[in-house]
Structure formats: structure tokens, C-alpha cells
Simulated assay, not measured.
Amino acid sequence: MNELLGFGLLAFTSFFTLINPLGTMPIFMTMTKDLNTNDRTHTAKKASIVACITIIAFAFSGQLLFNFFGISVDSFRVVGGVIFFLMGMDMLQARLASIKVQEDKVRTYINDISITPLAIPMICGPGALTNAIVLMQDAESVEKKAVLIGTIFIVMFLTYIILYSSSRIIKLLGETGNNVMMRLMGLIVMVIAVEFFFSGLKPILQDIFPVVT
């Protein structure tokens, strides 16, 4: 039971920090500022659903991709650790997502922003996809797989709630509060990145330099 709880906590913490719905809020509000409340709610709901389906699909098909391309999980952990670390550095410096929506182009794709760029790659980015594949590989039991999928649903539901309440949350936290929250999340992501990197690097080095007993 403790093992499942620990795995679920790891999954929740890593997904929530990597998806970073609080960091997505200002960009979401910018892209939906001309929408009414119902349209904004529909956009947040559709983006969360599309991102959730994408993450779950990658979680189950990740191993097939590994086998097809001849990629090892350990190598993916190393690369994932690098990706997480770079994302954590950006978050630690309170920089938002690298995607910047120009005001004169918002209206041209406003009916489709729930899929791109909101769902992919802002909510469901490379960090979240990497995390899903690696954690599914680590979930060796049916119970852990169920915990992982349940955690993904919970995080995406929270993401929807945060985006839905974005106007109130941003006003409540203020610019300083948003920056502090993003820095804290960035620090957590960097810690997860170190764990992922060395957990993948260790078996690779052991294969290259086998210890003779």
C-alpha cells in the first residue's frame, strides 16, 4: 500500500509540475481574452481532454515505439532528465512557455487553439510525454498502472479547473505570486530531472564498464 502511495505521489508531483497549469494560465487568458465565458470554458475543457488522451496514448504505446526504433528505456530516462532540467531552469527563472501568440494572429486560429497550441505542446509537452512513458515502464504491476492512469486523470481535471478559474487565480496570486509559484515548481522539476538522469545513466555505465566479480 505504501509503495502504491509513493508511486502515486511521484506521478502526481511530476505530472503537475511538468504540465504546469499555473504557468499556462496567463497564456491561456491571452489567447481567450476575446471569448465569452462559455467559449472559454469549452476551450479549457477540450484542451484538457485532448492532452489527457495524448498522454495516456503515449504511456501505453511508448514501449512499442522503443522496440520499433531500438531505443532503451534507460536512454530515454537520460534524455528525459535533460529535458526536465532545462524546463526546470526556465521555470526557476519564472519564464513562461516559449510559445508566444501574436495578437494579430489570435483570431485566425482561435477556434482551434484548444488543440494547438494549448493541448499540444503547452499542456501536453515533451516533458509530460516523457514522464508518462517512463512511469508506465516503471509500473510493473496492474495496480501501479491503474494508479498512474488515475493520477493522469486527476492532474488533467485539476488543469481544467485551474484554466477555468484562471481569471480569479491570477488576480488572487498577482504577478509576484505567479512568479514564486513557477520558481517552486521549477525547483521540483529539476530535482526530478536529476533522479531520472542518474537512474538511466547508471545501468548504461554498468553495461559499458561491467564490474568483474
Rank of each mutant, 00 (worst) to 15 (best):
M1K: 05
N2M: 15
E3Y: 11
L5K: 13
G6L: 04
G8K: 00
L10E: 15
A11K: 04
T13N: 11
T13H: 06
F15N: 09
L22D: 01
G23D: 10
G23N: 12
T30V: 12
T30Y: 11
D39H: 13
A44G: 02
K45H: 02
K46T: 11
A47T: 01
S48F: 00
I49L: 12
V50T: 10
I55D: 09
Q63C: 06
L65C: 06
L65Q: 05
F66L: 14
F68N: 07
F69M: 10
F69Y: 15
G70M: 03
G70S: 05
I71K: 08
S72N: 08
S72K: 03
V73I: 11
R77M: 09
G81E: 07
V82A: 10
I83E: 15
F84V: 13
G88A: 09
M91Y: 09
L92A: 14
Q93P: 00
K100E: 15
E103S: 15
D104Q: 10
D104R: 11
V106G: 02
T108F: 04
N111R: 15
S114N: 10
P117M: 00
L118M: 10
I123E: 01
P126E: 00
A128Q: 00
A128D: 03
N131G: 14
L135I: 05
Q137Y: 12
Q137S: 14
A139K: 04
A139T: 05
A139S: 11
K144P: 02
A146M: 09
F153A: 13
V155T: 11
T159V: 01
T159N: 05
I161R: 02
I161D: 01
I162Q: 00
Y164C: 02
S165W: 05
L172E: 12
L172G: 06
E175M: 06
T176E: 11
T176K: 12
T176Y: 05
N179P: 04
V180R: 08
R183Q: 10
M185N: 08
M185P: 07
I188L: 09
V189H: 04
A193K: 12
L201C: 02
L201A: 05
K202H: 11
Q206Y: 05
D207M: 12
